[in-house]
């Protein structure tokens, strides 16, 4: 369980806070989507939820982050890494740039933990298998498509065995094929019982993946509820979030007097 309690955060070198009074709990195995307009504080919330802000990037945090009931304040990043992982947009900068094969790339995290070789080997194979990328294990990490690169980055996180994973727009720089690959990987990940917090512009990806969706605007949580309700909320476009195509289609149909459920029924 990952809990943020009364969290406000200000970056180092800046006078004003970007997150205000955030109250958020993610249960074990829960998949939570995070949406909101640009500059709303989504990325900052991801960094705070992963503990990297302030553990790695400094800044001033008030309130608390606790994981499985333990307070995380003051812990160095490598201790946080085994509890909560964070993934970013760009596959290239998430690769270490020092490995010759995908296998070694994924093995880097377990090696950094100082694990024995046998354990590193087992964790790496398991992570590759979870995401179904065993076939590229011996390829160079520099010669992958964007989608494959993102899967390798994700596998590298899984090899750390975190029980919580935060993903900051994992498909923002990917083509439709890459987005599809990552979408499948997220479903596979969800099936392992890992708790997920996913920021995403593409609400189609969240639809059907998340149980719960949070809307953030101006550094505050403005809506928090079951995924179906939030995605169907009339105010969503006002927060700069485009509803999933399923709902837009239904609305367009309804505007012309057609009932999508009725059509679906007829087709069936």
């Amino acid at each position: 369980m990952l809990e943020l309690h009364r969290v406000s955060y200000r970056y180092a070198g800046y006078a004003t806070a970007v997150l205000h009074d955030i109250e958020l709990t993610i249960a074990d195995g829960e998949i939570v989507g995070l949406v909101g307009p640009n500059e709303a504080g989504k990325s900052t919330l991801c960094l705070v939820a992963s503990g990297l802000a302030p553990a790695s990037i400094g800044g001033a945090l008030s309130g608390s982050l606790s994981i499985d009931g333990e307070l995380m304040a003051g812990r160095p990043p490598h201790e946080l890494a085994e509890r909560v992982a964070i993934g970013f947009q760009n596959p290239d900068t998430q690769l270490s740039g020092v490995t010759a094969t995908v296998f070694e790339e994924v093995a880097l995290g377990p090696m950094n933990l100082g694990l024995p070789v046998a354990e590193t080997l087992a964790r790496t194979r398991e992570a590759l298998a979870t995401l179904g990328i065993e076939d590229i294990a011996e390829r160079s990490p520099n010669r992958l498509s964007g989608g494959q690169g993102q899967l390798v980055a994700l596998a590298s996180l899984l090899a750390m065995h975190p029980r919580h994973v935060v993903l900051d727009e994992p498909t923002a720089q990917l083509d439709p094929e890459g987005t599809r690959l990552v979408g499948e990987a997220l479903r596979a990940l969800a099936a392992t019982g890992t708790a997920l917090l996913v920021t995403e512009h593409k609400t189609d990806l969240l639809d059907g993946l998340c149980q719960r969706i949070i809307v953030i605007d101006g550094g505050r949580i403005v809506l928090d509820g079951p995924a179906g309700d939030v995605l169907a909320d009339e105010r969503l476009p006002g927060w700069g979030v485009e509803p999933p195509s399923r709902i837009r289609l239904a609305r367009a149909m309804a505007g012309r007097g057609l009932d999508l459920d009725l059509i679906a029924g007829t087709l069936r």
Partner: peptide, 24 residues
């Protein structure tokens, strides 16, 4: 500009831990 993102990506892989590693 790459430094910041790569730093964070390495932090979550326990790069900052001091101590020996077992090489593959």
């Amino acid at each position: 500009t790459e430094v910041e993102e790569r730093t964070l990506a390495l932090e979550v892989r326990a790069f900052g831990r001091r101590g020996r590693r077992h090489l593959l």
